[in-house]
Design a protein around this nucleic acid. Sequence first.
DNA 1: TAGTGGTCTAGACCACACT
DNA 2: GTGTGGTCTAGACCACTAC
Lengths: 258, 258
Amino acid sequence: MAVSRERRVPAWAQIADAVRAQISAGELAPEDRLPTEAELMARHDVARSTVRQALTALVNEGLIVPRAPRGYFVRNRKPLFYRPQQEFRAQPAYPEMDRFMADHSAEGREPKQEIEVAIVDPPADVRKRLNLAEGELAAVRRRIRYLDGEPYNTNDSYFPLAVVQGSEIMNPADIARGANEVLRELGYPQTRTLDEIYIRMPDPNEIKRLELGPGTPVACHICTGLCDDGTPIRVVVNILPGDRHVIVYERDGMELRK
Amino acid sequence: MAVSRERRVPAWAQIADAVRAQISAGELAPEDRLPTEAELMARHDVARSTVRQALTALVNEGLIVPRAPRGYFVRNRKPLFYRPQQEFRAQPAYPEMDRFMADHSAEGREPKQEIEVAIVDPPADVRKRLNLAEGELAAVRRRIRYLDGEPYNTNDSYFPLAVVQGSEIMNPADIARGANEVLRELGYPQTRTLDEIYIRMPDPNEIKRLELGPGTPVACHICTGLCDDGTPIRVVVNILPGDRHVIVYERDGMELRK
DNA sequence: TAGTGGTCTAGACCACACT
DNA sequence: GTGTGGTCTAGACCACTAC
């Protein structure tokens, strides 16, 4: 079972292809252990680093996970639904949703979150969206959400400090009625939002905060909340690991009809 | 400038950190060339494969791009807006172009698309969303969209074959008034949609079709179109490379008010 | 203690873009 | 031709887990 020595395709790529084929054929199921490096060396008659190059490629594709020194394992993806539209309302979905819900339910899992409030000089992208001048400060509520003790996503909400100073938003505890309701009481009802979703690899800080393995991309969901007159009042930066989320939007007739 | 030999942090990680810091500090700007491998070997006093391990990590983070044999370069991200909410709207400006083209030709870039129509046994995930029985066939319009000759995204629209057989949808050419309008004429007006967005690394097929470099994650945007009675009539699978897209949604007062 | 992957070295030959 | 990254070999030592 040696690799082809005509160099049309690198040996490491041939090995990666073979393993990839086994995975997509179901011969290797999620959570299964791969053959050891030594076994792959023997099977394909190559040096160890060639095998490792193949395995590293598969790791970075998100297909397998190394769990030293136990071996490599086929990755198990279990994404849950993430619904930007339901952050601010508890509206029932259309019944068709149920067809997809079963696969992605968080039922029976233990949610937890850590909240931290700080006054910061906001990062440039947040400053721009909040329309703050240079030097103007922001309040940020940083949350890390967990399911069954595993980090699920992060949620950093930025507000102009001048608006929320002294309000309940500065208190690092859950706000039962929602931060949005507090903003309304403060005279800044949020009536429109702009959602931007960036797809990229995580930075080292995000990897640490969310305990991300290699080969795990993230969605960066930036939600800018606006008042009626267009004043930005809130910027939420969500980091959503790709192996733990499906982002879902529903759109109805109103917006589909020109 | 040698690496620290206390093994708290691997040498390759220290080198990667150093380069990463230079990039985020702006010392290395997008499109700049990195030091050669030989230079990094000398600078950090390590073997070549250690340097390569550091560079491979940065490549897989999407931070740098290898352009052999010219060197490594800092990656340049130029994402364009992708607006699911406007994909199905009327096309006022240029009736011969679909919405995608109208949006981007204004930016001075040359849009192009390749359309291909086929009758297929749909993949399992599409079959499920279209609510088709085992063995029922679907028609698929496969599109690859280009900007300035570079692949931008792919867009595969699936329809129940029984519905669209013999219609304009089976013709591999642009449909000026939109496939949605054709569905309406056929008696299946699409009045709601469900958007799902998955974040993952591309598979080899997608890498080839979209000419993706390593370290480029994709969003898989699956849009299921429904009739008033909930019958699914259309499933669109979009593959959106992360370095070329920002997904944008707007939400207004209607849906924000509980 | 044995076996695993993690790290690192010191070589080698190749294809290709530039000059 | 020169220099670059791409590929590959054949070793070595380490830390950790499972037995």
